[in-house]
Computed example of a mutant assay.
Amino acid sequence: MDLLSPFTDPAMVAHYAESTPQKVPGFADLQRMAMLLLAEHAPGPADILVLGAGGGLELKAFADAQPRWRLVGVDPSAAMLDLARDVLDGRMTQIRLVHGVIDDAPAGPFDGAACLLTLHFLPQAERLRTLRELRRRMAPGAPLVVAHHSAPKGSDIRRWLTRSIAFANRDGGDFAQASATAATMAQHLPVLPAEEDETLLAEAGFSDIALFYAGFSFRGWVATA
């Protein structure tokens, strides 16, 4: 399965900005928490890298809250970057968009970085490589904020994915259909147990790794480069 294919589908891209906040519990609050965790280290003018920035939602949230930040958004989907340009109308003076993956990101050093709802698409080895490349582009002591699907320790990820899908449906909870969808997702998404996610962050060179967000199958961490 080509994991990029949904992000090139015109119908999916057209509804992304509307549908994504419905799928992630506390989506707006997650973005605000990510911004605050970055701003804690970079309260003034700062260079911030956003990996997986297609759609522009977190870039918009960051730019509105921190007008002195210089933001670089990287994404492999040209269609999603086109959507980001629409979402970011009037804010592009502080934002640079880059078509590609982490290897195409500027060398930095960046004062902070975020990777939201992205790493669960990457197999374990590629996820570790991506985190290492993120770390290499960050200034010492800079914060990294990540959030993505992750299984709580010792639990069945399909059960947690089912709960997330039922949450997104907003139809009273059709758990049979949600369970079938979750089984398909679990086959194609390389979702890791939370402890493995934390281990990868440490292996990539990050320290002070701390969980700051949890919502059904979604987990978020902040770590220090």
Rank of each mutant, 00 (worst) to 15 (best):
M1Q: 15
D2E: 10
D2Y: 00
L4G: 11
L4K: 04
L4I: 08
S5T: 07
S5C: 03
S5W: 02
P10A: 01
M12P: 00
M12Q: 14
H15Y: 07
A17E: 13
E18P: 02
T20K: 14
Q22I: 14
K23D: 12
V24A: 13
D29A: 15
D29I: 13
A34V: 09
A39W: 12
A39G: 13
E40M: 08
A42K: 07
A42M: 04
P45N: 13
D47S: 14
L51I: 13
L51S: 11
A53H: 00
G54D: 03
L57K: 06
L57M: 10
E58A: 10
L59H: 04
K60W: 07
A61V: 03
A63D: 05
A65R: 07
A65P: 08
R68W: 12
W69L: 12
R70K: 13
R70N: 05
L71S: 09
V74S: 10
D75A: 05
A78K: 03
A78M: 04
A79L: 04
D82I: 03
L83K: 10
R85P: 08
D86E: 15
V87Y: 00
L88P: 00
L88T: 08
D89F: 06
D89T: 15
Q94M: 04
Q94K: 11
I95G: 04
I102T: 02
G108F: 08
D111C: 01
D111P: 13
A113E: 04
A113C: 12
C115E: 03
L116S: 01
L117I: 15
T118M: 12
L122G: 09
P123K: 05
Q124C: 13
L128E: 03
R129Y: 14
R129F: 14
L134V: 12
A142T: 09
A142G: 10
P143K: 05
P143T: 01
V145A: 10
V145Y: 03
K153N: 03
G154D: 09
R158H: 11
R159M: 11
L161I: 12
T162F: 08
T162I: 10
S164I: 00
I165Q: 03
A166N: 09
F167S: 01
N169A: 15
A176N: 12
A176M: 09
Q177G: 14
A178E: 01
A178K: 02
A178Y: 07
T181I: 15
A182W: 00
A183L: 05
T184C: 06
M185K: 08
H188S: 02
H188I: 12
P190I: 00
V191Q: 07
A194E: 15
E196L: 07
E196I: 14
E198S: 08
L200H: 01
A204V: 10
F206M: 00
F206T: 02
D208R: 06
D208Y: 13
I209T: 11
Y213S: 00
G215T: 10
F218T: 05
G220Y: 03
W221H: 10
W221Y: 14
T224P: 05
T224N: 09
